[in-house]
Amino acid sequence: MLVIEQSLRTFTQDIFKAMGCSEEHAALAADVLLLSDLRGIDSHGVARLTGYVRLWEKQRINPTPNIRIVHETPTTATIDGDAGLGLVVAPFAMKVAIAKAEQYGSGWVSIRNSNHFGIAGYHALMAVEKDMIGFAMTNASPLVAPTFSNERMLGTNPMCYAFPAGKYPPVIVDMATSAAANGKLEIAQRAGKPIPEGWIQDKEGNYTTDPHALKNGGSLLTLGSDRDHGSHKGFGLSATVDILSAVLSGANYGPWVPPFVSFLEPPADPVGTGIGHFLGAMRVDGFRPVDEFKAHLDNWVSRFKSASQIDPNQKVIIPGEPEHEAHIDRLKNGIPLVDAVVKDLNQLAAKMGVSPL
C-alpha cells in the first residue's frame, strides 16, 4: 500500500495526541517517524507506533514530560527527559547542543530518563541545518551479545555522524553497531523470510537465519559477527555508545536498559533512569570557513563516486545517498507500507479512536 506523506503524518500525529501529547509534541514525534519512512528506513518509522503506545499503556512513557537540564557547563549539559518520548526529548537536547555550539564552537549533551528516539539521523541533521557537524547516538534494548558470549548485554546502539556539503546532500553515516538492527528482523518476520547468516545467534551461540530466534533466547551479533571478522570492533563501538549515552548521563546501561521490544520486561534492579542518548554539534567554521569545507567535501564526494567499480552496474555509494534518493522518490510517489504494518496501524487506530489509514 502506498500512502501519501501528509496522510501518514496526520495519522501519526493523531495517535500521539490520543496518547495525551500536546499538539507541538505530537507534530514533532510524527516528524521524526515520518523522516525515517521517507528516507527508506522502514524499521524505525510508523511501524514502531504500536511499540510507543504499548509503553505508554504500561506507563513507561510520559506524554507530558518536564524535560530539563540538570547539570551543565558552557559547552556540555546533562538532560533529564522525565520519561518522555525520545522522539521529543532528543530534539530538545540537540537544540541545547546547537545553542552551545553557536556560542562556544561545540556543544555536547548526554541524556537520561528517555525512551526510543527514532532514527539517529534526524537529530544529527538538525546540526547540519546550521552548518554544523552533528553527532547522535543512543543505547537500546539489550539484544546483542558481546564477542565470545551468548548473553544479551547491549543494544543495537546506533551512532550517526552528519556533515554538511555544498552541491551534494549531507554525508550521513547512520548505523547500528550490531550486525543488523532489530527492526530488520521485524521486517523479515512480517515478510516471512529468513535473515542472512551472521546477523543473529541462537541461545547456544550458533548462527541461525530464523528472524524469530530472539524470542527463543537468541541474541543479535555485534558488527563483524565473529572475532575473525572484527566483532570485537563492533563490541567496542557499541560499548562506546553505551558509556557516552548512559554511564555518563545516569541512564540505565548494558543489560539494565529498559526494553522497547515486547518480549522483554525491564529489569527489577535498575542502575539508572530510562534509556540514554548522547548528542553533539560542532561548528564547521571553528576549523575552517564553511564554504571551503563544503567545497572540499563536494570534491571528496565526487572523487569517491568516481572510484573504479568492480561491477559496472554497481556504483560506489556515498553514506546517506540511498536514503536521500528514497526521500525524493517517496515524497513524490508515496510511502510504501506492507500489509502487516497497515493491519497493525488500523487496529491501533480503532483502539485509540482515530481515523484509519
Rank of each mutant, 00 (worst) to 15 (best):
Y104G: 07
L34A: 03
L348E: 09
S141W: 03
L87H: 01
P322W: 07
V241E: 00
T209S: 14
S355E: 13
S249P: 00
S219E: 03
P170K: 04
A165Y: 01
G274I: 02
L125N: 10
Q59G: 08
T222M: 12
S106G: 12
L297W: 04
S219P: 02
N206W: 08
E265T: 15
S106A: 13
G320W: 01
W199M: 07
E323F: 02
M19R: 07
M282T: 10
M282Y: 15
M352G: 09
G198R: 12
L220C: 09
S219V: 06
A27G: 06
A191S: 11
L345D: 10
Q314G: 04
L248Q: 11
V3R: 03
V341F: 10
R303S: 10
I133M: 14
K315G: 10
Y161A: 11
H229G: 09
V290R: 10
A181C: 08
L28P: 00
K294Y: 05
S36Y: 02
H123T: 11
A140W: 04
G166T: 08
F11R: 10
A340M: 12
Q103G: 08
P267T: 14
Q201I: 15
L244S: 07
G107T: 08
T12D: 08
I187G: 02
L357E: 06
L34V: 09
Q189G: 08
V70L: 04
A188K: 04
M132G: 00
I119R: 13
W56S: 10
E265D: 15
R39Y: 02
L331Y: 03
D42E: 15
D339Y: 10
L248I: 11
K184Q: 12
K215S: 11
F263S: 11
P266T: 10
L125V: 05
F235N: 12
A127Q: 03
G320E: 03
A281H: 09
M352H: 10
H123A: 06
Q309H: 13
F278G: 01
V46H: 02
D285V: 04
L264I: 06
E24I: 09
A251T: 01
M159F: 14
V341K: 04
A326E: 09
S110G: 13
S302W: 05
V271Q: 05
L348G: 09
A176T: 15
K100I: 06
L357R: 11
F16Y: 15
K332E: 12
G107Q: 05
S178W: 06
I187L: 14
P158H: 05
I41R: 03
R227A: 15
I317E: 13
A191V: 06
K315V: 13
K193S: 13
D226C: 13
P164D: 00
Y122K: 02
P146S: 07
D80G: 01
V316Q: 09
I200M: 12
I133S: 04
W56E: 07
W108S: 06
V271Y: 01
T208L: 04
M282A: 12
